[in-house]
């Protein structure tokens, strides 16, 4: 099932929401990398350039109560799901005011209030956990859905295959959102994956497999909305592949000269924020509104950066807490 590129059904409201999220993600990623470059922060960071629209449009199709499990490359998902910038920045900086008191760091963001339940650094491991979130919703008769977000490379690990089979057998309200950026570290899709479209793998598990254009907000939003409706209706899981391109190295600072220049520049062109802005402006969103969205996002980021930098580091004694319910001896 291949989604035809975008019908014009996105409402201006939804277009605005998607742009706000995508812009915030794009600017946050850029600001964060700038701080890493000039040494203001020193942490392992997996850039999300090229993934902004997938997260923005997919999460726009969810409610706050819906569950999300994401990965180390998860800044975009976390912001799009609604985690306040300041909490996220403080956690990225390892501060006690962060989402996880500085105990998780960028690779382990959790914020149940916005449904971000797990961020894992183990490729593919979040997929079975999303099943559990969905199973809980199913047993309790809630209307929530769970989303597992992961990469193309993750579709080669056993956890993916076990989880898709189980979700299909149990008709769980879960969406497997594969953000296919064509690379798993240095390995291309062709070199490491037996299919050229991850969505094809759904056939093996008796569930719908849908591939959408991850750089087209309407394509992502519509495909995601359909998957969400299916899950809420009790009709089970969907494997939704959103195709994009990784525009930077796997991890911040890593060499990516192995990515062919032509591919990269073609993708940069398709993923340009100016193009996205133009597209949104064609959906009854005025220039003034766009400017306002941008100014608000810029202000949110600056406020969050200041908060993160000013916040205190955790007290060393904090190590004894949250290992078990009861604190551990020193």
């Amino acid at each position: 099932m291949n989604k035809p590129a975008s019908s014009p059904s996105l409402s201006p409201d939804m277009a605005r929401t998607i742009y706000r999220k995508a812009y915030l993600i794009n600017r946050t990623d850029e600001r964060f990398r700038a701080m890493l470059t000039n040494g203001e922060l020193a942490v392992a960071y997996y850039p999300v350039r090229g993934h902004e629209v997938i997260a923005a449009a997919a999460m726009a199709a969810l409610e706050t109560e819906d569950y999300l499990v994401t990965t180390y490359r998860g800044l975009h998902d976390a912001l799009a799901k609604g985690i306040p910038s300041r909490l996220l920045w403080a956690e990225f900086a390892g501060k006690r005011t962060g989402t996880c008191k500085g105990k998780g760091g960028p690779m382990h963001i959790t914020h149940p209030e916005t449904g971000v339940m797990v961020t894992t650094g183990i490729v593919g491991s979040g997929i079975p956990i999303a099943n559990g979130l969905a199973m809980s919703s199913q047993i309790r008769g809630e209307n929530r859905v769970a989303v597992a977000s992961f990469g193309d490379g993750a579709s080669n690990i056993g956890a993916f295959h076990e989880a898709l089979n189980m979700a299909s057998v149990w008709k769980l309200p879960v969406i497997f959102l594969c953000q296919n950026n064509q690379y798993a570290e240095h390995t291309t899709l062709a070199a490491g994956t037996s299919v050229s479209s991850i969505a094809e793998r759904a056939a093996g598990y008796g569930m719908p497999g849908v591939s959408c254009d991850g750089l087209d907000p309407a394509s992502v939003y519509e495909a995601m909305s359909e998957a969400v409706s299916r899950a809420r209706a009790g009709d089970g899981p969907t494997l939704l592949e959103a195709r994009t391109f990784r525009l930077l190295g796997h991890i911040f600072g890593a060499d990516y000269s192995y990515v062919p220049k032509e591919d990269l520049s073609a993708a940069e062109e398709r993923a340009s924020m100016a193009k996205l802005r133009q597209w949104i402006s064609e959906r009854q969103v005025s220039e003034a509104e766009l400017t306002q969205i941008e100014q608000e996002a810029d202000a949110e980021i600056e406020e969050a950066v200041a908060f993160a930098l000013e916040s205190e580091l955790p007290d060393p004694d904090e190590i004894r807490f949250d290992i078990y319910e009861t604190e551990q001896a020193a």
Binding site: M117, V118, P128, G132, A134, A163, M166, V169
Partner: peptide, 24 residues
């Protein structure tokens, strides 16, 4: 619904249990 026989999928069994557990 509450007592579920599973496929032979140990990662998926424990993963599902972990996911359910974090919802209480």
């Amino acid at each position: 619904k509450r007592v579920r026989s599973t496929p032979i999928s140990e990662q998926a069994i424990i993963g599902a249990a972990v996911g359910a557990a974090i919802t209480g």
